[in-house]
Computed example of a mutant assay.
Amino acid sequence: MTAAGDARDEGEQMLSPASVDANDRAIDTAFRPQHLDEFVGQQRVREQLSLVLAAARARGQAADHILLAGPPGLGKTTLAMIVAHDLGRPLRLTSGPTITHAGDLAAILSALTEGEVLFIDEIHRIAKPAAEMLYLAMEDYRVDVMVGKGPGATSIPLEIAPFTLVGATTRSGALPAPLRDRFGFTANMEFYPPEELAQLLRRTAGLLDLELPDDAIMEIALRSRGTPRIANRLIRRVRDWLVVHPDAAPLVAVRDTLALYEVDELGLDRLDREVLGVLIRQFGGGPVGLGPLAMSVGEEPDTLESVVEPYLVRSGLVLRTPRGRVASPAAWRHLGLTPRPTDAQPTLMDD
């Protein structure tokens, strides 16, 4: 083989998709802290969870069941992994939408070993028959399996090993009350302030071998919507920009990257601005119901309510009123428009 062929083969090996995928997976794994003291932010939750886990280790028993509630991207899955790691127990992962029948859950529960941690993401979406089975499993470590159908069906009690359930939900209010009440500890996770996101981004930058000054780090933090998942995603795109444009100044690179991906100075993306634009230009600033608003932007109402609306409301750009969503004066100004005169302050919704 020629030297050119050797060089080509070496280059192809270095840039093979398998190598790139393995490297990305390693980075993704490294992003996740292994211990509570490595987890950035959520100080109150960390203190509360630390007590629960320390007490379980001292007793030599399975920890109380834990519910992690909060918006997407705040680290609920990472905390579930930390729970299993700190307890020294295996972790089994599943999600609510995949558990469509009680039999699905019975198969999972019967395979658990003593002290194992079962993580159910989006637990509010678990099927009702499975949720009812979970009540008994969480309380008495037992499930009743139905054998047969009709009048001849019989219920067979099946003992299961003591385990710790960690449930994650973005809508704790959607959980059935009997299920919610069986959790021994509920962690209510909050959005991150920019300073904590900056701390997290410095750790991520180190893992990516990326040198960014404090002003560039803070620029990313301020546009990350208080969400670590978004912050880590944006800094990886900044890394890509600097790989392609190695001579770019860091702060300029950050701003150019975020402009390319349509993330503005408030952290709004294309869909956020589209919702605000439709609300203001098509509906005169509101009030308008969620259904018509979602239809106008071509999205599902659930997407707007769970993904877009929380940040717009938290940023003071959208108000939720009994008559519908209303654009605030700040939203008009953000789009470069003059706020319409209002006769009275809208009445806000309690929820």
Rank of each mutant, 00 (worst) to 15 (best):
D86V: 07
G88Y: 01
G88L: 03
P90C: 07
P90Q: 10
L91V: 03
L91P: 02
L91E: 04
R92E: 10
R92I: 12
L93C: 00
T94V: 08
T94Q: 09
T94G: 08
T94M: 05
S95I: 03
S95G: 06
G96M: 01
P97F: 06
P97D: 09
T98E: 15
I99Q: 08
T100N: 05
T100M: 13
T100E: 15
H101Y: 12
H101R: 13
A102R: 07
A102C: 01
A102E: 09
G103W: 01
G103P: 02
G103D: 15
G103Y: 00
G103N: 12
D104I: 04
D104F: 04
L105W: 10
L105D: 07
L105K: 07
A106N: 04
A106S: 06
A106P: 01
A107Q: 15
I108P: 06
L109F: 06
L109E: 12
A111L: 13
T113P: 03
E114D: 15
E114M: 00
E114A: 13
G115R: 08
G115D: 10
E116C: 14
E116P: 08
E116N: 08
V117F: 00
V117E: 11
L118I: 14
L118S: 07
F119E: 09
F119M: 10
I120Y: 11
E122F: 08
E122D: 13
H124C: 09
R125C: 11
I126D: 06
A127D: 14
A127R: 06
A127Y: 04
